[in-house]
Each structure stands twice: as C-alpha cells, then as structure tokens.
C-alpha cells in the first residue's frame, strides 16, 4: 500500500499516469455532456412554471456543483500537502483553484441570466445560493492572489494551503449565515429544496451533465497538474529529456 503511494507521489510516475487518464476522462465526460445538452435542450419537457427557461438548470447546477467540489479538492489537497509535505498535493491544490474560480463564475453568470426572466432583475440578493457563490468566488480570488503574491514556490504552497483550510472551515458557516440572512425576508429562489419531484425525462439529462462535467473537470485538473509538476521539477533530468523530445516532435 505504502509503496503504491510513494510511487504515485513520484513526479515522473504521476506524470505518465495522468497522461494515460486524461483521454479516458475526456472519452467518458464528452459523450455524457453531449447527451445531457441535447436531451436537456430538446427532449426534456418544458417546466410547468418556468417554461423553457428551466433548461438553464442543465448548465447552472453542474457548474455550481463543481465550484464546490473544486474547493473541496483544493482544501483536501492543501491539507495533505501541509501535513505530509507532499509537493504533488500542493500542485493539485494550485491547479484546482483557477478551475474552481471558472466554474464559480459560470454558476454566477448562468444564475444571473436565469434570474433575469424569472425575477425581472439581473441580480437578486435574496437568493442565498447565488450570494454564497459570490463569496466563494472571492475566496478563490483571495487564494489565487495570495499564491501570486509570494515569489518563493514552497512558501506560496504552504501559505496558500493554510488559507485554503481556513476557508474550508468557513465555507459551511458562510453558507449557513447567508441562508439565515435571506430567510428573514423570504427571498425568491431559482431551485427550491424539497420541491415537486423532478420527472425522469428532466432528471436523466441533469445527472448526465453533472457526471459529464465532473469527468471533464478531472481531465482539466490533470492537464493542469501535469504542467505544474513539470514546472516544479524543471531542473530534473526527466523533465529536460521530455522537453527535448517534445521540441523534436513539434
């Protein structure tokens, strides 16, 4: 078991392994997203209340889900990196942050566009989910800004890891407080919890989108981690050999 972990943590081995996994993740994720998009747009019946506008759910929910998943991945990786001083874990945390920020942005943008026909405004402060997403975006931006502000690589890894962990403790508290805050004036929400059960024709494309997006996120994450590993190991012999080989191929 331990030898497996040690091997996994060794940069050249991980680099090769990640390269093998990326096409698989893409091969699973792309068809799922293609099916979900097609079925979500054309097969699923329009919602009895929101009409066709509810179809935005097929991009909004996966984006919101991944924005939180990416934060979890980032915080767990940061914790592992901080405790066991594992460089690879820091590379994962550093790679997850910009992806998470993109998905958070996407969740905000699609939520706002969805809100326009539903509420008549581009932004509704009363919706607790959107407000939480906005704060999550600020957390991502703070993490990335701190990382960018520290020149020394190891120090940047460890300092930003502390911030990621502090943020991870705060995320549920932020979520709870925003829920409480919006519950005071019964704001309108896009998605109600415990609402009417969603029919199969509507649900399957959504599940396909969520899983498909997750696999695409995995592929993107591994692509980014590969570059991070290369950069961190830029003085190692195997990286130099790789760089010369790729120069010949290009």
């Amino acid at each position: 078991m331990w030898t497996f972990f040690h091997k996994l943590a060794s940069p050249p081995h991980f680099y090769g392994l990640a390269g093998k996994f990326i096409p698989w993740f893409a091969a699973i994720g792309l068809p799922l997203v293609a099916y979900g998009t097609w079925a979500g747009l054309f097969i699923a019946p329009p919602d009895y209340q929101q009409g066709d506008a509810f179809r935005i759910i097929y991009v909004h929910v996966p984006a919101a889900y991944l924005s939180m998943l990416a934060y979890m991945v980032m915080a767990i990786a940061a914790g592992i990196g901080l405790i066991w001083r594992m460089k690879l874990a820091h590379a994962v945390a550093a790679s997850a942050a910009p992806l998470g920020a993109w998905f958070t942005f996407l969740a905000l943008a699609t939520g706002s566009i969805w809100g326009r026909p539903m509420w008549g405004t581009w932004w509704e402060w009363g919706d607790p989910r959107l407000t939480s997403e906005l704060i999550l975006l600020f957390l991502y931006l703070g993490y990335m800004a701190l990382r960018a502000a520290i020149d020394d690589g190891t120090k940047a890894d460890r300092a930003s890891a502390v911030l990621a962990l502090v943020g991870a403790v705060n995320v549920p508290i932020i979520h709870f407080s925003v829920e409480w805050w919006s519950s005071l004036h019964q704001g309108p929400t896009l998605i109600r919890e415990g609402g009417p059960a969603i029919a199969g024709d509507m649900l399957y494309p959504l599940l396909a989108m969520i899983f498909g997006f997750s696999f695409l996120f995995g592929a993107l994450l591994l692509m980014r981690v590969k570059s991070e590993v290369l950069y961190r190991e830029r003085r190692a012999r195997w990286v130099r050999r790789l760089a010369t080989e790729s120069a010949g191929a290009a």
Partner: peptide, 24 residues
C-alpha cells in the same frame, strides 16, 4: 426559440461551452 426564453437559454449554454473551451 425555447418559447420566449431562447436568448437566455442559448446565452447560458454558449457561455458554458466557451468557458470549457477556454479552460482547455
């Protein structure tokens, strides 16, 4: 046309795939 919501739905899907491609 998506009823009267075509603009909103298509913008969202377009934005999503633009962001995904940008990430790649």
């Amino acid at each position: 046309a998506m009823g009267k919501y075509g603009v909103y739905v298509w913008t969202c899907f377009g934005l999503t795939f633009t962001v995904l491609v940008t990430c790649v």
